[in-house]
């Protein structure tokens, strides 16, 4: 329990009244009013203590979220059937407290959507989730902490709409390149061209024979996958850009239900259905960092696999600098 600013003012006021009581001769009404004030203060302390009793807080739906943006999660507060008022919650992450939200009246259980703080990329350990209240009079604030085992994973921010448009060429090119050089996926046949098919998939010889455009189909997949190699022996800003791009591709792949394979120092993993989850990839992207130039090279991959950072990054950085 900690006194609030109003509590300190009230205490000063109360002590002044006490002094006035002893300075003046005894009168019943003064004593009565002083008793009222004293009882009110004591009961307020007790009520503040009781208001938070048996209230538990829990964050649900906690998943990795993009850097520098606020994520919405659910805060679940549970108490008993007694009404409790003005229950507030805050989260202490990496030594800083962040207010989450409040429930004005809690009876039984309540769930509210709260926003997690905007953080830079990284994996943060949550110190604790704090439930607090200063009800009824706001003189004191009682805190209850519950430990959170989970980490707060803030993955790189995907290229936003503007960024995608600005570097759209880059993204499209990367995706196209990836799809055409689909790593371990070999062509299984041809089919008619459909609008949106990458030009690199067009089977020019077959198209010439048939006199209409046909494209190559890749073996074993209903949709083409993405395979990347990330060399982390690069500058931090370049790596960040790469990670943002990978995040964008990962989201793209996840939404399109395509697999994504990533090969980097210490990791060579495919993500998607039947493979490791994309959450694991995002967790890796949240935690990973650049390596010194003397560090070993990433695992070797087929020449067709797109390499990051590559010419796309250099060109994009040049565009940004321009």
């Amino acid at each position: 329990m900690r006194p609030t600013a109003f509590g300190i003012k009230a205490l000063t006021f109360y002590l002044t009244i006490i002094a006035a009581y002893f300075v003046s001769p005894y009168t019943n009404l003064f004593f009565l009013l002083l008793s009222f004030l004293s009882t009110l203060l004591l009961l307020s302390l007790f009520s503040t203590f009781r208001n938070l009793g048996r209230v538990q807080g829990e964050l649900t739906g906690l998943s990795p979220y993009p850097a520098e943006s606020m994520a919405r999660v659910r805060l679940k507060l549970t108490g008993d059937q007694r009404k409790r008022f003005n229950i507030q919650a805050s989260l202490r992450v990496a030594g800083r407290r962040h207010a989450l939200g409040r429930v004005e009246v809690l009876q039984g259980e309540a769930q509210i959507d709260v926003q997690l703080p905007a953080l830079s990329r990284g994996a943060y350990s949550i110190d604790y989730l704090e439930i607090h209240s200063n009800y009824p009079l706001g003189l004191l604030r009682r805190y209850r902490r519950s430990d959170c085992e989970t980490k707060l994973l803030v993955h790189p921010r995907p290229l936003d709409d503007a960024g995608t448009q600005q570097g759209g060429g880059v993204l499209d090119e990367v995706i196209g390149e990836v799809l055409s050089n689909s790593g371990d996926m070999g062509p299984s046949g041809v089919r008619d061209y459909q609008a949106g098919d990458p030009l690199k998939l067009i089977h020019w010889r077959a198209s010439a024979r048939r006199r209409e455009l046909v494209v190559k189909e890749l073996e074993g997949h209903s949709a083409p996958g993405i395979e990347l190699q990330l060399d982390r022996r690069c500058a931090a800003d370049k790596l960040e850009r790469c990670l943002s791009l990978i995040t964008t591709l990962a989201i793209h792949a996840r939404d399109g239900k395509r697999p994504l394979a990533l090969h980097t120092q210490g990791l060579s993993q495919t993500y998607g259905e039947g493979h490791a989850s994309f959450a694991e990839l995002l967790a890796f992207l949240a935690e990973t960092s650049s390596l010194p130039t003397k560090a070993p090279a990433p695992p070797p991959v087929a020449p067709t696999v797109i390499r990051l950072p590559g010419r796309h990054m250099d060109r994009e950085l040049q565009e940004l600098e321009a």
């Binding site: 003046s24 005894y26 004593f31 009565l32 009961l43």
Partner: peptide, 18 residues
Amino acid sequence: LTAMVFMFCPRDFDREGL
């Protein structure tokens, strides 16, 4: 509670102020 304090709290009813 105030009524109870008023009724039972021992005090000097003839106290003169400072």
